[in-house]
Nucleic acid binder design. Structure first.
Lengths: 191, 191
DNA sequence: TAAGTTATCTACCGTTTGGTAGATAGCGCT
DNA sequence: AGCGCTATCTACCAAACGGTAGATAACTTA
């Protein structure tokens, strides 16, 4: 469609990274179902065919986007996880997530939109989200084990509140994400 | 596509209701972007053209689905709202919602999926959700006004937790939605 | 500079999509 | 029974979609 003014040729690694970054933004804005191959390509100044040279299908692109986010996310909290797992560490990790997400609204929106879409068992990312979330809860539960009488319930409480707060923050930017979380955590971890 | 075995002719009111119920189920399962006109029609044993006789466009159908849910929802809590607004009433209303939603998983999923899709300003239901949610929070805040020192923050806390809990319940049916909510509310409304 | 590799493009295909036009048939009324 | 209304259908369209095939051009290396 776009009559290419210039033909930029990039090494595969760079091009892949460029595509993944752009795709992340687009999916965050409109969901996976809401973005076409051509839109993904155009955002990098190339054509569908060019993009499909790097990702064999639209679906493969989605999975690459998710895996990239996982990698970046884990790397960012790696150092916080060093001490022995206990409730204080759990709070620190979660506060870290909050602070990080504050600065990356579009990434948060990507996850929110996609994880809702993926409630449909037929969605390409359905199993991805199921496994990822149950792993997350299990890890958190393990952190709360020695501190809370019902660690399972507490883990669900925390994740539910965080998910819901993110969602409402996306819907209404007027919410003070960080302050709201810290106030809640103060009460929660005081008991 | 479907070689109609019989031609059912219904009065418009009945047919509209049938279509809206079916559409609600389908959107809950796959989102609005995930369902085609033909799928909506086929679920009622008719063709696209037949459906478009009752709703002028796909988008108009979506809006009708949302408005119908609003109507049913408001009617179901109308009697709980009678007493003067205070914190106890707020909790009663919210508990009512939880109990009701427990029995209508697909409706909850409809709202969850749609409200995530509608984060995109270009989505046909974007403004609908923005206004609806801010109204809801304002109403809740008003209920908490005389009881909580920071009613605004408290309202956000409650809605965030409820939204997040619903979301996690949809993702993992193993969660005891009601018990989890009641335990949280006990703590929240004790302070 | 010449050859080889491959990232990118143009052009196309088959399918699906939302929507329209006009024919058909079920129902209420007299 | 016969007429009118309209809910529904069949047939169609233009646009958009994901993906493929083969041509082209930008780098690398000798």
């Amino acid at each position: 469609m776009t009559p290419s003014p210039v033909r930029r040729r990039l090494p595969p690694a760079e091009r892949r990274e460029e595509i993944l970054k752009a795709a992340t933004e687009l999916i965050a804005a409109s969901g996976f179902k809401g973005v076409t191959l051509e839109a993904f390509a155009a955002a990098c100044g190339m054509t569908k065919a060019g993009l499909l040279h790097h990702f064999r299908s639209r679906e493969e692109l989605l999975i690459a986007v998710l895996e990239r986010r996982d990698t970046l996310d884990l790397a960012s909290v790696a150092d916080t996880l060093e001490p022995a797992p206990d409730a204080a560490v759990a709070r620190a990790v979660m506060s870290g997530f909050v602070r990080r997400n504050l600065a990356q609204r579009s990434l948060v929106q990507l996850y929110t939109v996609l994880s809702a879409e993926a409630l449909d068992p037929a969605h390409p990312a359905h199993v991805y989200f199921r496994t990822r979330l149950s792993e997350g809860r299990a890890m958190l539960e393990c952190y709360l084990l020695a501190w809370h009488p019902r660690p399972g319930q507490a883990a669900v409480d925390l994740l539910a509140f965080l998910d819901g707060l993110q969602l409402n923050w996306l819907r209404d930017g007027g919410i003070d994400f960080l302050a709201q979380w810290e106030a809640f955590a103060d009460r929660f971890f005081a008991a």
